[in-house]
Every structure is written in C-alpha cells, then in structure tokens.
Amino acid sequence: MSLVVDKPRGQGWTASALLAPATIFIAISLFAPLGILFRYSLNEFVPSTKTMVEALTVANYVKFFTDPYYTAALATTIKVSLLVTVVCLIVGFPLAYVMARTQSRFKHLLIIATVLPLFVGNSVRAAGWMVVFGNKGFVNASLMGLGVISKPLEIMFTENAVIIGIIAVNLPFMVLSLQSVIEGIDRAVEEAAFSLGAPPATMFRRVLWPLALPGILAGTILTFILAMNAYATPFLLGGPTFKMMAPVIYNEFTQKTNWPFGGAIAFILMSVTLGLTLIANLLIQRRSAR
C-alpha cells in the first residue's frame, strides 16, 4: 500500500508560490537592512578619518545612554509621542463615533475629508504650519489684529508646534481605526445599556469602550509608532534646538557619517517603541480581561 497524504486544494505548491513574492520582498527589504544595520551598530567609528572599523563592541549603545544630549532626545520623543497619542484618542473618538453612526448621505465625504490631509506630504504640510504659526503668521496676525494680544505668541520652533503638527498628521489614522471598529458595534447594544438604567457616561465606560478596545489599541499603537518616528514635522517645526529621535538619527548618518552610532540609535528607538507598545498592549488587555 502506498501512503498518500491527502492535501486540501490550494495548500500545496500553488499557495507557496503565491505567498513567495511578498515573503521574499519583506525578507530582503526589511530584515536584510535591519541585520546589516545591527551589525554596523557593533562596529567602531574613527572620527578623524570618518571611517567605520570592523569590531564587536557595545560602545555605541553605552555612549547613547551616558550622554544626556541623546537621552534627552529620547525622553522628549517619548513625551511628545505619548501626549500626541492621548490627544488623538480624546479628540478622535467623538469624531470616529459620529462618522460610524451617522445616517447622513454625506458620510463618504466626511471620511474623505478625514483622509484628505494625508494626500499632502509631511514636509509640505509642515511648511503650511510654519506659515500659520510664524510671528507674522495667520494665528498671530489674527489675534494681534483683533487686539487680543499685543506681541506675537511664540509658537513656531517650540514643542507645542511639533505636538500640534504631529497630531494633525496622526489624527486620521486614529479616527479611521476607531471608526471601523465602532461601526461593527450594534447600536442596539448601547440602547440596551440605556434601557437598563445606564446614563451615557456609564454606558461608554461599561459597553462602548470595552467593545471598541481593538480599535483603540490599533489606533493608539499606529499613532504612537508614527509619532515616535516622526521626522519632517519635528525637524521643520521644532527648529534647531528641539531634538527628537528621527532627526538625530538622520543627522548621525548624513552629517557625521557615523554609521555605527546612527545604527545603534536606530535600534534603540525601535526597541523602545516596540517595548512601550507591548507594555501598553498587555496593560490594556489585562485590565479589560477581568
């Protein structure tokens, strides 16, 4: 008797062949550069000749954590990202809720309007913000013209400008993540809570929030990662003294051509982002699983 393993259709060579291109592409384009970069981060850098010397050392990582200039940049990045994420969640939830629940025939226009800002590149948008925030910009000119303030507000080249800028970029991601999940929640479930005696705030806490949690997680993670890695916005709106991680890494690679140290910072940023995301994920899931 011969042993014949009966495979369901589509699980043999065909499926493998279909999966291969994407898998190979990801392997080459993501893991290969990461691997090379990680290897670089363990090399030595000779400042006098601006060259990389093959080595196996953690000196670059030690340098990052012992130099307050870099740890401050990391702290700023985490602080800004957390703030941006929280604001996006608070501002985005009501908007997402309305978009998910509306019966209006202009619903698709609302969604397009939300996504529209993403059609403009980050640097172009940042340039727009510069016009709005500048000393003679839209905000200051309007407020001074109305006599609300006598001298221009310092918005441009501050942390606040960066935060506002990144929120504007990230809000659509948060709103769309939340909207798709809220749309899947039966409206009658909210009404059931009302009819059982729950006022709106209680209904939100006990029913809507836990049911929307997958969307909240997705939106929060997306927003947080995007903020942690923001480059154009902090670079253009933060000015020369404001430091976030992505511009610092770029600076190491291009201005100083210090590839080992740049690689090390890149890995630190990635690890911190991943670590914080995982911790938040675990915390939220544990709290909701009670």
């Binding site: 009658a188 479930v189 059931a192 809570a193 009302f194 009819s195 059982l196 006022p199 209904m203 006990r206």
Partner: peptide, 30 residues
C-alpha cells in the same frame, strides 16, 4: 425622561446582549 430614567425592560430584535460580559453579568447589568 431619557431611557435610563424610565423603568422599561426592552428585548431587542438582535437581542443586543453585551458580547464582552457573561450571561450572569448581562443579567446583573441593570
């Protein structure tokens, strides 16, 4: 009065049970 201040028990066409709560928690909600 809003629905949460009326003492009306409602059974919905879709049942509208709270999917994240157990049967006992659903019944205990009100």
């Amino acid at each position: 009065l809003p629905p949460w201040k009326r003492n009306a028990g409602m059974v919905f066409q879709s049942y509208a049970l709270f999917p994240h709560l157990t049967v006992a928690q659903n019944v205990a909600f009100g």
